[in-house]
């Protein structure tokens, strides 16, 4: 008798009041054959989940600072423990802002330099690998951005650390993958669009990979992000 297929772990998609990309994330995960479930921000547990996604949106209306209040939601204690245990945590757009406010990633996301909300596709150069992106360094991805506060900043010592440890995962670039002389659409320091933590299991990025999974609605480069997770789930024994 052939062995029964082992059920893959589910991905938790955290819903804060004001999140608005959780269904896109669940759709993308489902499209790739990954199971997901919504977890309310007021919940306290991530037991049974293999990964966590903090989706985009406007948690708590972006009041005070983007992500500042969501960072203290009850579920965030579990997210912090999950991250510290080395489990995969992804923050997209507002999710990235929440991870930065929670100090699970360094730096902060300021208002776009041009003061405009930006909604368009951008070119991104892959700079390094992390648990959420296993693409060749130097390859160029196209993903949509959709934000008003994506202007990444950090102090110079933090920037030195990010560079030295190859923790910048994606940078805004031109179509040929050049970043020199190319300014980030939102003014982000060093063209930084996405970074990881020292253990490389926490990934935060402003672009929306979940909106570029189903090729009929906006490209397929976002598949790379979730496929890395799928590969890990396939290899790991739970």
């Amino acid at each position: 008798m052939p062995p029964r297929p082992r059920p893959r772990p589910r991905v938790a998609v955290v819903v804060f009041p004001g999140s608005n990309c959780e269904q896109d994330v669940a759709y993308a995960l489902n499209w790739l054959g990954l199971d997901s479930a919504y977890v309310w921000h007021g919940d306290h547990s991530l037991d049974g989940f293999g990964a966590v996604v903090l989706p985009g949106g406007f948690s708590y209306g972006d009041y005070l600072r983007c992500g500042a209040i969501a960072r203290f939601s009850p579920i965030m204690d579990a997210v912090t423990r999950f991250a510290r245990a080395g489990r995969p945590v992804l923050g997209i757009c507002n999710g990235f802002q929440i991870l930065a406010e929670a100090h699970l990633l360094p730096g902060a996301l300021l208002r776009n330099a041009g003061l405009k909300f930006i909604c368009r596709d951008v070119a991104l150069r892959v700079e390094a690998r992390c648990d959420w992106l296993d693409a060749p360094t130097g390859s160029v991805l196209h993903l949509p951005i959709n934000h008003n506060e994506g202007n990444f900043v950090c102090d110079s010592a933090t920037l030195d650390d990010l560079r030295a440890d190859d923790r910048v995962i994606v940078r805004y670039c031109d179509e040929e993958g050049r970043t020199d002389g190319v300014s980030a659409p939102n003014g982000a320091l060093d063209n930084i669009a996405g970074i990881t933590n020292a253990a490389r299991n926490v990934f935060g990025l402003m672009p929306h990979p979940e909106r570029a999974v189903d090729p009929t609605v906006g490209g397929s480069d976002g598949q790379l992000v979730f496929q890395s997770l799928l590969q890990q789930f396939t290899q790991e024994v739970f």
Partner: peptide, 8 residues
């Protein structure tokens, strides 16, 4: 903790 972000 909340009202300001000491990073920025």
């Amino acid at each position: 903790k909340l009202l300001a972000n000491p990073v920025i």
